[in-house]
Design a protein around this nucleic acid. Structure first.
Lengths: 195, 195, 195, 195
DNA sequence: ACGCACGGGACACCCCGTTCCT
DNA sequence: AGGAACGGGGTGTCCCGTGCGT
C-alpha cells in the first residue's frame, strides 16, 4: 500500500467515528485534525470537501458494519435471524463504531442536507430487511414457519425494535433496553417458527 | 395575555419546529428569524441565548406531545397501551411536530452538547415507559394479563419498537414500517392479555 | 459620526500604512487585524474583500498626500514648483505615510493585479505633472520663464527626479539623495526662470 | 557544461523574469514551474529554497544588467555618462529584463524581507553612482568640467532621474518620460561640461 | 419592545512551500 | 526529475450575541 493510501484510510477511519459521534454538521475539520494528527492540508489532500470526506467515512462505517454482520448471513435458515438479533445485542458491549449505529445516526442527523449519505443509510437498512425477509420467506416455504406471518413486516419490526432499543439505550445509558428487545424478538420468533 | 408573552409563545412554537427539523446545532438564529418574521433583536429580547431558546422550544415540544398523549392516559386498563400504540401510529398521518418525534431527534441530535435537552428527552421516554409498565403491572395484578411477562421490559419494547419504526419510516419515507410495528405490538399484546 | 464609520476610518488609516509598507499582496488580513486591534469579522463587516479594503486604503493614502500638498497649490507662479520640491524634500524627515510614497509603491507593487489601484496612482502622478506644467506654462506666458523650455517635459522630470531620489533614499537609507535631487531641481529652475 | 548546470541556468533565467514581474513574494513556485516546464522536484533539486532561487535569480538579473552596461564603462571621459544615459534610454525599446529595472523593483518590492536581495540592489545602484562620480571627478580634475559641481550629487541625480522616469514610464505606459529625463540630463550635462 | 449594525470567533476551502519517495 | 504528500497560513463567509437607536 502506498503512503497516501494508508493515510487516507486512517483519516477515513477516524473521521467515521468523529462524524458518527458529532454528526456531519456538528463536526469541524479541526476535530478531524485532532483525531488524525494531520493538519488541514494533509486532509484536504485526500478529499476535496468535507462532504466528500463524510461520504467516504460513512462508506467506511457501513463496511465495518458489514464485516460485523458477515457471519450472520452465513447461518442456515432462521438461525440467520437469531444471529442478526444477537449481533445487534452485542452492540451494547462492543459497538462496531463509537457513537452508535451509523444507520440510526444518519437517519436522524441528515434531514435534508447530505441526501447521498441518507441514501446510503437507507440502502443498508433496506438490505437488512430484505435479507431477513428472504430468510423468513424461505423458512415459510420449507414449512418451518407459520405461513400467516408477513415476512416483510416481521423483518421491519425486527430492525425497528432493535434500532429503537439502541436509541433508548443511548438515551438512558442503560444496555437493558437492548437486551429486552432482543429477548422479546427471540421469544416472538420461537412462537412463529415452531408451528 | 400580554403582547410580549404572545410573541414569546410564537417564537417558541416556530422555533420548536425549526429545531426539531434541523437540530439545535444545525439551526441558525436566522432560520428562527425567517420562521417567526422577527429580527434578531426581537428574539433575543425574550431569550438570553440560543440554548435557552432551544430548551424552551423543547419544553414546548414536550407539551405538544403531552397534549397529544393526554387522552391515552384517560383510558382504562390495558386500553391505555392500545391507545398509546394507536396514537403513535397516528404520527404518520398527523405528526405532532414537523420533523418527527422530538424524543427520537433529541436522543440522536444532542450527543454531549445540551445535556439539559437530553435529560428532558430522557424524562419523557422514561415517563412513557413507567406509565405503560404501571398499567401492565396493574393488569397483571388484576389477573387480566399473563403474570410471567416482565411489564417493565414490555413497556421498553413497546416504546423502542415504535420509535424504531418511526425512524425507518423517516428513513424510507414509507409509513408502512409504523403500521407494521403497531400491528405487531397489538398482536403481541392480545396474546399477553387474554390469558 | 456613527460608530461604524469611525471604525471604518480607523481600519482604512491603519491598513493604508500596512499596505504601503508590505504591499497589497504581501500584507495579510491578519496584519490588518494586528494593526487595528479588530478581528477578521470586524474588518469584513466594513469591506467585502481585501481588494476593496486596499482600494479604500489607497484612496485614504492619496487623501493624506493631497492634504500634504494642499499648501503647494496655494502658492503663486513658479513658487508652486518650488513649494512642490520642498514638500517632497520634507518626505525624508516627515513622511506622509509609513512605507514611503504610495504612488511609487503602487507603481511597482501592482504589476497586473489591482489595475484599479494602479489607475489611481497614475491619476495622482498625472495630476501633479499637469499642475506643475500649467504653472510653468503660465510663467512662460507671463514672460517670467524661458520660452524654449518644454513645460510638460520639465514637469515630468521634476516628478521623476524626486520619486527616483526617494527610491534611492529608501534603498540606501540615506536622505541625502533626496536633498541632492531637490537642490538640483531648484538650481535648474533658477536658470530657467530668471531669463 | 553539464546537464544539471544548463538546467540550473534555465531555471535562473526564467525565474529572474518571473520574479522581476511579479515580485518574489508574489511569484509562486508554480509560476516558475510554468515558466521553466519543470516540476517542483526538478527545481528543488537545484535550489534549497525559494529564497535561494530568488537570490540566484537576482544575481542573474544583475549580470544581465552588467552585460548591458559593459560598453558604457569602456567609453572615455564624460562620454561614459552620456553612454549611461543613452543605455538607460534604451530600456524603453529593449528592456534588459521583463518587468523593468530590477534595481527599482527590488528597492520597492522587498521591504524588510529578503535583506540580502535588497543589499544586492543597493550595491548595484551604488556602483553606478560611484562609477559616474569617478568619471565626473576625473573630468573636473582634467579641467573639462566646471569644478563647482558636486560630482557625487550629480551622479545620484542622474540615477534618480532615470529610475524615476522609468517608474513614470511604467506607470503611464508612456516611454516619453524616459526620453524627457534623458534629454534633460544630457542638456544639463552639456552646460556642466563645456566650462 | 423591536430593528439594525457591529464586533468576535470559528470554519471551510484553497494555495503555497517543502520534503520524501519513486 | 516527477509527483504525491504534508504542514501552514490566508481568505472570505457565517453565525452568535451585544449594543445602540427607534
Amino acid at each position: 500500500m502506498r503512503k497516501g493510501e494508508s493515510t487516507r484510510a486512517l483519516i477515513v477511519a477516524r473521521a467515521a467515528e468523529v462524524f458518527n459521534v458529532q454528526g456531519v454538521g456538528g463536526a469541524a475539520i479541526s476535530d478531524i485534525m485532532a483525531a488524525t494528527g494531520l493538519k488541514k492540508g494533509g486532509i484536504y489532500n485526500h478529499f476535496a470537501s468535507k462532504e466528500e470526506l463524510a461520504l467516504a467515512s460513512f462508506e467506511h462505517a457501513t463496511a465495518v458494519l458489514a464485516r460485523r454482520f458477515a457471519p450472520v448471513w452465513e447461518e442456515q435458515g432462521v438461525n440467520v435471524v437469531r444471529a442478526f438479533i444477537e449481533t445487534f445485542r452485542g452492540y451494547a458491549q462492543r459497538p462496531p463504531l463509537a457513537g452508535g449505529c451509523p444507520v440510526l445516526n444518519a437517519a436522524i442527523d441528515s434531514d435534508d442536507t447530505n441526501p447521498a449519505l441518507r441514501a446510503r443509510a437507507h440502502a443498508v437498512a433496506e438490505e437488512w430487511q430484505e435479507r431477513l425477509a428472504a430468510v423468513l420467506r424461505g423458512s415459510q416455504e420449507r414449512g418451518e414457519s407459520r405461513p400467516e406471518i408477513d415476512a416483510v413486516a416481521l423483518a421491519s419490526v425486527i430492525v425497528a425494535s432493535l434500532e429503537g432499543a439502541l436509541m433508548l439505550t443511548k438515551l438512558s445509558d442503560d444496555p437493558q433496553h437492548l437486551q429486552w428487545a432482543a429477548d422479546h424478538l427471540l421469544d416472538y420468533l420461537e412462537r412463529a417458527v415452531c408451528c
